[in-house]
């Protein structure tokens, strides 16, 4: 076990993969000499050189597009998008190329690559630096979508993503980079499995990324007010998602709440609720609840910003109210 920050866990995963395989390269804006906007690649350029820590121009389409070509050419690239909103310039490459080349070529092309994807509401970065795109990414067949909620998963899943021969979008939340946690370096972690953060009996709360922490912050109040116990699940892998773990939990508790930071309309949680309604309708004792971001661009003003996304207080209040109306 080792205690480290989320960004240190990511750094360590990349470092170990680069040490083990000279074909692993990383590219993006300021990933080399600068050490990465969120310091994820700090120190790596002095170990592996500028040939492997590639500072690119501000041209996201090319960052992902070049990474695809590098993968075709035999390298194992890690492309860093500085922040999710910028990735929209690369969505043609992600969707039309990265996700499709293997299938369209009947498996003749493989793309062993990772696109690292910091996202989410940080602090007053306003509408063009605060969004979340897991819902769009998860709607694309041909890519794996991981979302790291803690240092342990960040370390293990990023390593696995780099080693895998399939393209992975690896989502990180910008407010988690300085989150400290235990990393079990020797553990075998299956990146496709969800993690039960807290066991409980009466309701299942499903979340991912930073919202897991906000849910955990809300749980004491919920349990105090309702007298019931919550099971909290960090999905971790968003596509595919671990229906086995969810099913076992929902069959036990009979109640489902999904908490997500992205906009509610078309948000990722809709997929989880829809799956539960289709597959586990008779296991549910109440209609599921979705708590999500408002359908509004993220505003700059702190008060408005917090009003646009779930917070621990709002999560607790909504679940308590929903519980009261649904026999919890």
């Amino acid at each position: 076990m080792a205690e480290m920050l989320y960004r240190e866990a990511l750094n360590r995963a990349i470092d170990e993969c680069m040490a083990a395989d000279p074909n692993v390269v990383m590219l993006g804006e300021d990933v080399g000499l600068y050490g990465g906007s969120y310091r994820v690649s700090e120190g790596l350029v002095s170990k592996y050189g500028e040939k492997r820590l590639i500072d690119t121009p501000i041209a996201e389409l090319s960052i992902v597009g070049n990474a695809i070509g590098m993968a075709i050419g035999g390298l194992r690239p890690i492309a860093e998008i500085m922040t999710a909103n910028f990735s929209l310039l690369a969505f043609d490459q992600i969707i039309n190329h990265m996700a499709k080349y293997r299938y369209m070529s009947a498996g003749k092309l493989t793309l062993p690559m990772v696109v690292r994807f910091p996202q989410g509401v940080s602090k007053q970065l306003a509408a063009q630096h605060s969004e979340s795109y897991e819902q769009m990414l998860s709607a694309v067949p041909g890519i794996r979508v991981f979302a790291a909620g803690d240092p342990n998963y960040a370390y293990h899943a990023l390593k696995k993503a780099i080693l895998m021969d399939d393209p992975v979008v690896f989502i990180e939340h910008e407010l988690l980079y300085n989150k400290k946690g235990e990393v079990d370096l020797d553990a075998e972690v299956d990146p496709f499995k969800a993690r039960i953060v807290k066991e409980g009996e009466d309701l299942t709360i499903v979340s991912y990324l930073k919202m897991v922490d906000d849910v955990m912050a809300a749980v004491p109040e919920i349990e105090k007010q309702t007298g019931k116990s919550c099971e909290v699940i960090d999905l971790q892998s968003l596509n595919p998602f671990d229906t086995g773990t969810l099913k076992a939990s929902i069959e036990k508790t009979g109640r489902l709440v999904v908490v997500e930071e992205d906009h509610k309309m078309g948000g990722y949680g809709a997929q989880v609720v829809s799956w539960a309604a289709e597959s586990l309708f008779y296991a549910l004792d109440a209609a599921p609840l979705r708590i999500a971001g408002e359908n509004v661009p993220i505003p700059y003003n702190r008060k408005l910003e917090l009003a646009s996304i779930p917070t621990p207080d709002k999560i607790a209040a909504k679940i308590i109210e929903w519980g009261a109306n649904n026999g919890l």
Binding site: L61, G65, G73, L75
Partner: peptide
Amino acid sequence: YGGDAIVGGHLPNAVGCAYARKF
């Protein structure tokens, strides 16, 4: 390597592959 039907979309891929060859 194809065979790409997004006009100009394959050019960054070709550039990335050229990086790999130089590497």
